[in-house]
Design a protein around this nucleic acid. Structure first.
Lengths: 355, 355
DNA sequence: GACGAGTTGTAGAACGTTCTCCATATAACG
DNA sequence: CGTTATATGGAGAACGTTCTACAACTCGTC
């Protein structure tokens, strides 16, 4: 039993930059230069190297790259993977990234601050080139601290005063206003908002922004100085319970604006079960214009904020930041209303857009 | 202008293993040993090092780790992020991983073989410790080739003869059988399956497996040797078109089994729009038991395969493989029926489980 | 009091890139 | 022909870990 017999695990001897260099008869540095198409490479050399790369099917190690320079990977952090709005954002990100040499790696934090922190740290430790955080929970100061180490773009995070990172948002205040205006236009006066009962809802969260917009539009419409906002728990047994309670209230409002389709759709469903007619007894308007809302069976009017576009814009912003921009950008998108039967019987099918 | 003036970008001098070693007054190797809790560390040394780690808030670089040893990251590859079945799998994966020191990074291939390949390669290049592929499109030989380089567990990929990687599946044949048996039990005889029109549907795909199960159960029930299976395109304009056509067919069957809730729900919706009553004119049963199916508004009977559990089982299998197992495992889960109104009026609410 | 066995710590070579200098070749110009 | 600029290729030091050898030290034990 010689030492050689210690079977090295699975040494599938990798094709490294050295292999390529040897095969092409040039130096390692030369290959690296070609890869990064850096300055100082003749056409002849480039050809030789690219041929060798092709012939050997060489792929640079992302781990090694990250150790020294770029990893050509951007991290995307999702608060939650169940909300149908988020896949749209991913689709936007992937769409922009596809033709580039960047790739996206996604982490899911399940809305837990601790996991969120550790995922961001991991992504930094992986030397990813930049981060897109979708609706992060962490406070702005902490994000700023991270942003020193890695370019960051936050989506669905309202902090236009942040200087260390960029933000990309739909104008959630305006979205809520549009919702209220639509309800007013249909003649409803007794309107309430169903919002999210967060443990720690900072002002930066989209939910709070929608509340602000709701209040403002209500006041502007002359409907009292402190319009009613009910908080619905996020977890499943209490959530339905709260909705049922809402639906069976004697002073139930005539119309309701839900912070998310997720809630609006469940509400619609419970309403049907409990014999509350929509929109005759209760008009409902949601947020996100999710695929389910568009189903004829559901037919939920909703505010559309095009997650896809948000993802695209965020990705472009991130890349420009990776490539050197230092001044922060804060981009706003204007949402629009998609009117459907839950708002008014006549609203069926027609998508009336509003600026 | 001296050379020093060339502002180094953002040198946030990182706390490295060397910093920790210096702070604790020990060697780099000692710190590494403590990190990996390797053999040959005294309690005193361990204490000194852990204190230093704590004090400096040291985090090992994942990039550097990957270069030499483990990266403590596992990659999850999703074919598609829109199918509501997939978030469940992720939840299962994250649940098992949470207490460990592993972390999941997710890639989304959008069902494109090329992107799938390049994502797998990227994950290998990142020196991830293992891969969970959910419903991959690549042929078994290619997966086997990858499996030489990195431990792989495939979920929703029926190849029990694979020796290079593990598979974790719900028994999709049995699931389809259960669906057909339920329809038969309700007295339906004229049954058709709505399947997926894939470009390249290999036998390993869950869809084909469900077709096989469908055929077998139909034959066993004495309903002809080649029962009808309609293929529905996956892309959006043609998809609805095909469903409308199906619904308006003169020889439309009395009951239909859909390969996925995704299709079943859209079908339900279109049926309502076109005045086809469910289940009176047409009974419908789906697959996946997605959250939307459970809505009172939708009330779709469906085969439940617990994506969460699949994710958990796959993760455990992967970890055991990472830690040395070489014999391949092929795990099967038995799905169950969740009966609802789309199957029969009386089915409302009660979840009748079947083995 | 020499020798093996066991324990604890360290030096230093990987790992696969990037990137800063530096060396050489060629061109341009007086 | 000498001098200077410019283009092209290469050497070799990082980057932050892991991990194999090996050194040093402590005990028994003969």
């Amino acid at each position: 039993m010689s030492i050689e017999d210690k079977q090295r695990p699975q040494r599938t001897d990798r094709v490294t930059i050295r292999t390529v260099a040897a095969h092409a008869g040039v130096s390692v540095a030369a290959v690296s230069k070609v890869m990064r198409n850096a300055y100082g490479v003749s056409d002849a050399l480039r050809a030789r190297v690219t041929d060798a790369i092709e012939a050997l099917a060489y792929r640079p190690s992302r781990a090694a790259r990250g150790l020294r320079g770029r990893s050509f990977t951007i991290g995307v952090l999702l608060i939650d993977i169940r909300n149908p709005f988020l896949p749209e954002v991913i689709a936007g990100v992937n769409g922009v990234l596809a033709p580039s040499h960047y790739q996206a790696m996604i982490g899911v934090s399940d809305a837990r601050v601790q996991l969120e922190t550790s995922l961001i740290e991991s992504m930094i430790d992986y030397k990813m080139d930049g981060l897109i955080l979708v609706a992060p929970r962490l406070p702005s100061e902490i994000l700023a601290k991270f942003a020193v180490q890695i370019p960051i773009v936050a989506v669905g995070y309202h902090d236009a005063s942040a200087t260390a990172f960029d933000t990309v948002n739909a104008d959630d205040q305006r979205g809520a206003e549009i919702a209220v205006e639509a309800l007013l236009a249909c003649g409803y006066r007794d309107i309430e908002m169903l919002s999210l009962g967060e443990r720690q809802g900072h002002a930066v969260s989209v939910v709070r922004q929608r509340e602000i917009g709701f209040r403002r539009a209500m006041q502007r419409g002359g409907l009292g100085s402190s319009p009613a906002i009910s908080k619905i728990p996020i977890a499943s047994p209490k959530r339905e319970e709260a909705m049922r309670k809402f639906l069976s209230r004697k002073d139930r409002p005539r119309a309701v604006f839900c912070w998310s389709d997720l809630d609006a759709i469940t509400l619609l469903s419970l309403a049907m079960e409990m014999g509350v007619r929509v929109p005759d007894d209760l008009a409902v308007i949601g947020y996100d214009n999710s695929p389910t809302a568009a189903l004829g069976l559901v037919n939920l009017a909703s505010i559309d904020q095009s997650g896809r576009e948000l993802g695209q814009v965020a990705t472009r912003a991130l890349i420009s930041r990776i490539e050197g921009r230092t001044a922060s950008e804060h981009i706003f998108q204007i949402p629009s209303l998609v009117s459907r039967n839950s708002l008014t019987r006549s609203g069926s099918g027609t998508d009336m857009k509003q600026g």
